[in-house]
């Protein structure tokens, strides 16, 4: 074997992996924060000092104290307990929407990317869905079909699907031009098998990155829906609901909005940071370089 691997001096070293070097610590902190939020949500009944729902008018709008670390809300409920319970809905919605949007988007995108006939129709529908402002659409769906966690999930998923579809489709469209796909064709490999074996794996890395953004966006939209009063029942403590109830007291007691706001922001921030870290590692453009 004389043709040993040539030294690839790499006149263009990928910039991706090092790009986040300055943020080296950020993904780790983000992961820890997210893990804490998840644990808090799971063990909410064990760790919360008070019932998040039972009202106690005597204790309304109390300042922080040893018993109520963040104070109480207008119905005398412990803010800390409510914020901890609030993580539950956010995470469930975030996870549920991500799974739904990625699975449906992947399926539609694969078909659309590989079958030209389906493509024209599917993409027009996706363009139409993209044109409708997602929050408007979601509020409309929720208010029409009734507010439950399922309708909220569906309402948030529908506007997310087109983004996943477009991503998957564009990857499939470029991957199907790869000679190894043509090689598979000339080896007599069937279309479904080419899709499954040669095309779909190309989408995994970018989809992982996209999934984190879908998750962050879903949690955000859920909070907006709750905040506008179009989310899950106002009796359920969600970050958006807590803030919505606190709106009229904002000048009196801003912390009622700022604490759940902080929790929400931290949650979305850590997911986004993890997504950025994943992209730096997995970015398809970086991975495509020959070596």
């Amino acid at each position: 074997m004389a043709d040993t691997t040539p030294i690839r001096a790499g006149l263009r070293l990928p910039t991706g992996k090092l790009a986040g070097a300055g943020f080296g610590l950020a993904p780790i902190i983000a992961a820890v924060v997210l893990l804490l939020i998840v644990l808090a949500a799971i063990f909410a009944p064990q760790i919360t000092p008070h019932d998040p729902i039972a009202q106690n008018p005597v204790l309304r709008l109390k300042p922080p104290s040893a018993d109520f670390p963040l104070g109480t809300d207008a119905y005398g409920r412990d803010l800390l307990s409510r914020v901890i319970y609030g993580a539950r809905i956010s995470l469930i919605i975030g996870l549920g929407v991500t799974v739904l949007a990625v699975v449906l988007g992947l399926a539609i995108g694969l078909v659309s990317g590989f079958f030209r006939v389906a493509d024209a129709i599917v993409m027009r529908i996706m363009d139409g869905l993209m044109a409708m402002p997602s929050v408007l659409l979601a509020i409309a769906i929720v208010s029409l079909f009734g507010a439950s966690i399922w309708t909220v999930m569906a309402a948030i998923t529908i506007p997310e699907i087109p983004r996943v579809v477009r991503l998957v489709r564009s990857i499939v469209l470029s991957a199907r031009e790869e000679p190894y796909v043509e090689a598979a064709l000339s080896l007599g490999t069937s279309m479904p098998r080419i899709l499954w074996r040669h095309l779909m794996p190309n989408t995994f890395a970018p989809l992982t990155v996209q999934a984190t953004y879908v998750c962050a966006s879903a949690i955000l939209t859920e909070a907006i829906l709750s905040f506008l009063g179009a989310g899950v029942s106002t009796e359920t403590p969600t970050w958006g609901n807590i803030m919505a109830e606190a709106r009229i007291y904002f000048q009196l007691k801003p912390s009622l909005i700022l604490w759940p706001g902080l929790a929400l922001s931290l949650c979305i921030l850590s997911i986004n940071l993890l997504g950025d870290a994943a992209r730096d590692v997995l970015d398809p453009r970086m991975g495509k370089r020959k070596d």
Partner: peptide
């Protein structure tokens, strides 16, 4: 085409792209 595919095979130009990197 399937019965005839067997009789015709191709070697492509770019050796870096003609093999699926994942298998």
């Amino acid at each position: 085409m399937k019965p005839y595919r067997k009789k015709l095979q191709m070697v492509f130009q770019d050796p870096y792209r003609s093999l699926n990197p994942r298998i």
